[in-house]
């Protein structure tokens, strides 16, 4: 039996099973790694024929469901640092606005697409490679007996000298208030430039620059993504009318279940295993993007919009 559903804003008809499956897979990754999954979902939606602008906006809507489901699961397990998440979010909102203006200027100059593409590939490739190498090294070291505590790095010493230190008990770190605000600003600006939620940048930032434990990182990242996507969904619906609620509904039915299973799975995996898995996914997306940039496209014309 054919279970196709008409998407009134996207203006096309798609199989319900395809949407449920896409939502389930991306929701699972979201719960597992604490990412929104927009960098995977939007290209997949475009592949099944959803207009790019509708795909990106509706994806934000479904991420609200997946991230609220994931945040709830992690909050119950005590692995959401609300204090850190709120500061990152505040920085992110300001950074996002600055990023949007930056892109507006670049568009006026005519080279926005080049900057966006290069930023995307460099960020994804850099983060993925670093996470992969670091996790691999860490897993090897774990197998041996750690002989001595390493000397604090230059970065750790510089961060230690910053003023307005506050305690983040959930993350078991004491940091300057400026750190999450500044890093939130940076990630927000980059996310706005690339047109994504920023989870895949925020997770490494929390792990390597804020030194938060991996399981708290996942929950806190989802908490922050939830509010970012609420903002994006309302703005897209108001300004562009590109949110397809029916599309989002079927995606979210799959993703909320997937997010719960992902959150359970994340608890069973070790931090280094989680990091290396995420690194592999990020590197695979980078490789796909690079191929798309180098290989001759099937068509020299394309519809506007999307990530």
């Amino acid at each position: 039996m054919d279970f196709s559903i008409y998407l009134p804003v996207a203006g096309s008809s798609v199989s319900m099973w395809v949407l449920l499956a896409l939502g389930g897979v991306v929701g699972f990754l979201s719960g597992l790694f604490g990412v929104g999954g927009g960098f995977l979902m939007t290209p997949l939606l475009i592949m099944i024929g959803i207009p790019p602008t509708v795909a990106a906006a509706s994806d934000s809507n479904q991420i609200v469901a997946a991230s609220s489901s994931g945040t709830y699961a992690h909050a119950r397990a005590g692995s959401v640092d609300f204090r850190m998440g709120t500061l990152l979010l505040l920085g992110g909102l300001v950074g996002g606005s600055v990023g949007v203006y930056f892109i507006k200027i670049l568009r006026a100059l005519g080279n926005a697409d080049f900057v966006i593409t290069v930023t995307y590939v460099v960020m994804l490739g850099g983060i993925g490679s670093y996470m992969f190498v670091e996790s691999l090294r860490s897993m090897r070291v774990d197998r041996r007996v750690r002989r001595e505590e390493p000397r604090p790095s230059l970065y750790a010493r510089l961060v230690g000298r910053l003023p307005w230190k506050i305690d983040f008990p959930r993350s078991r770190v004491e940091l300057s208030l400026l750190m999450p605000l500044a890093l939130g600003f940076l990630v927000g600006a980059l996310a706005a430039i690339m047109g994504v939620g920023g989870g895949f940048i925020m997770v490494p930032v929390m792990v390597y620059l804020l030194r938060m434990p991996m399981h708290v990182v996942v929950g806190t990242s989802l908490f922050q993504i939830l509010f970012t996507c609420v903002n994006v969904t309302v703005l897209q619906a108001t300004l562009n009318g590109t949110v397809d609620f029916v599309l989002a509904l079927f995606l979210l039915l799959g993703s909320v279940v997937g997010a719960q299973i992902g959150a359970q799975a994340s608890k069973r995996l070790k931090a280094d295993q989680l990091k290396i898995l995420m690194a592999v996914i990020v590197l695979a997306v980078t490789a796909k993007m690079l191929l798309g940039l180098v290989l001759t496209p099937h068509n020299l014309l394309t519809y506007a919009g999307g990530h």
Binding site: S67, S68, L252, V256
Partner: peptide
């Protein structure tokens, strides 16, 4: 609706 569905599933 999205947040409600997410929270409901969480519960």
């Amino acid at each position: 609706v999205a947040a409600g569905a997410g929270l409901l599933t969480g519960v």
